[in-house]
Design a protein around this nucleic acid. Sequence first.
RNA 1: GACCCUAUCGUCUAGAGGCCUAGGACACCACCCUUUCACGGUGGCGGCACGGGUUCGAAUCCCGUUAGGGUCGCCA
Length: 456
Amino acid sequence: MDAVSSMNVRVRFAPSPTGFLHIGGARTALFNWLYARHTGGTFILRIEDTDTARNTQEAVEVILQGLRWLGLDWDEGPVDGQATHLGRGDRGPYFQSQRADVYRKWVQYLLERNLAYEADGATKFRMTREPIVFEDLAIGAIRRELTDREALDPDFVIVRSDGQPVFHLVNVIDDLEMGITHVVRGEDHISNTAKHIALFRAFGVEPPRYAHIPLILNPDGTKMSKRDQGASLATYIEEGYLPEAVVNYLVLLGWSPKDNREILPIEDVIGRFDLPQIQRHNARFDLKKLQWLNVAYLHQLSGDRFTALASQALERAGVSLAPFPKDYIAAAVSLAREKIKTLTDLPPFVDFFFVDEVALDPEAMARELTPASRDHLAALRGALVALDPFTAAAIEAALKTTAAARSVKNAVLVHPARVACTGKTIGPSLYHLMEVLGRERVLRRFDRALAQIADS
RNA sequence: GACCCUAUCGUCUAGAGGCCUAGGACACCACCCUUUCACGGUGGCGGCACGGGUUCGAAUCCCGUUAGGGUCGCCA
C-alpha cells in the first residue's frame, strides 16, 4: 500500500434525488466506490435533498436501487429512502434535509468571526479576492481567477433570505463533518472548487483532496442531460443489460488498465484503479460498445443465473412459465444465449417454446408454408415419427437423409420446418430447438402447418 | 463577456522525447464458417486539430490559434 492508500480514505457520492440516476452520476459513484475499495477506505452515500419541493422518498429509492443494481455498496448512508430514518454509520444524518442544525452552527461560526454577513435578508460569505490554487488529483495544478462578474462582487450567498442554506455551504459542511478526505466528482464542479476551498479555510480546516472526472457526452458531443436518450441508468436496467457490463463499460469510459484488455473483472479494476490515471477529457457514450460488452458478459454467465435472468425477462414480457418444467425452461432459453444482445431481445427468440399454438408470422408463412413445401414437410414428419432418440444429432441426420432422398438441399426442408415449429424465420438452431420441443410438440406443429397449407 | 478544463482512427483508448512505419477494442467493409439470426475466425479501411518554438530527435515539453466542454444563481 502506498502513502495515500494507507491513510483512512473517506469518499462520498452525494446525489440530489431528482427521480432518476444519471449515467454520469452512476460513473461518479462508481469511481468513488472503486477508490474506496482500492484503498480500503470508506464509501459514503449522502442525499442532497435540500430542495424539499421536488424531493420525494421515491426519488431517493431510485438512486438506492440504481446503486444496488450496479453493485456499489455503501459503508455509510441511508438504509432506505425515508429521510427521517437513521442511516448506517456514525456521521449521519445522511440526508441534508435532516442537518439544518449543523448548518446553523457553522453559519453562526462564520458570522461571529465576520467571515460572513447579512445582506438583503440573506447571508453572504466573504470570498477571497485572491486566485485559488489547488492540485487536482486527476487533472493537475489548477489556478482559478475570479471571473469578471465575480470581480464585481466576489461574495456569494450561503443562506437564502428564506433561511435555506445553499449547495456550496451544505456541501462543504457535510464533507467537513463527515471527514471526507477525497472529493471525486464531475468536472462541472471544477470552477466551484475555489468557493469550496475558501469555505473550508474559513472553517479553519484543510480542504479535502479533489479529483474531477470528465463528463459523459452524447454521441454527437453535446452535454448529456436528463432528456437525452440513454441518460438514465433505468433505461439500461429496463432494456436488459447486465450490471457487470454497464459497470465494465463505465470503467472504460475514462479509465484504462493500459494492457489492452477490455473485459475487466471488477476485482482487477479495484486492484489497479487510481485517481491520477483518470482521463482528462470528456467521453462520448457509445451504445454499440456497451452492447458488445453485454454480449460478452451474457456468454460467460453461469447457466443458472442466465436461466434466472432469462425467466425474469420472459415473465416481464408476458410469457407464463408456470406450466413448464424447470429443465425445459433452462434448455429452451439456453438456445437463445448466443443470439441476443440484451435480455429484452430474448422473449421473441424463445416465446414459441411456451405456447400451445405458435403464432404464425404471415410473411414467414407466405414464404415457407407453400404448396411446394407440403410434401417435403410431410416427408420430414414421417422421418420424425419413429425417430429414436429424438436428439438434435438424430434429427439433423434424419433431415439430411430425407433431403437427399428427395434430391433437394437441406435448406428446402429446414426453412419450412422452422416456420412450422416456431412461426418465424429467425430463431435458435433448428435441430436443437426441435429436440427441446420434443417429438410430441413438433409433430403437432407440423400437422398444424400442413393443415394451414391445405387451407390456403 | 470573464474564468476554468480538454484535444491520438467515426467512438473508447495505449503512448509520460528516440521502442511509433502510432498499438488495442467497438463500429464499419470484405471473405470464411453456416439451416435462419447470431457467435466465431481472417483481412481491410481509418488518427497524433493547426501554427510556431525547445531538442540531434516531439504524438509526447513550451507558446499561440482553433475547436469542444464546463462555470460565473437567494439551482444542485
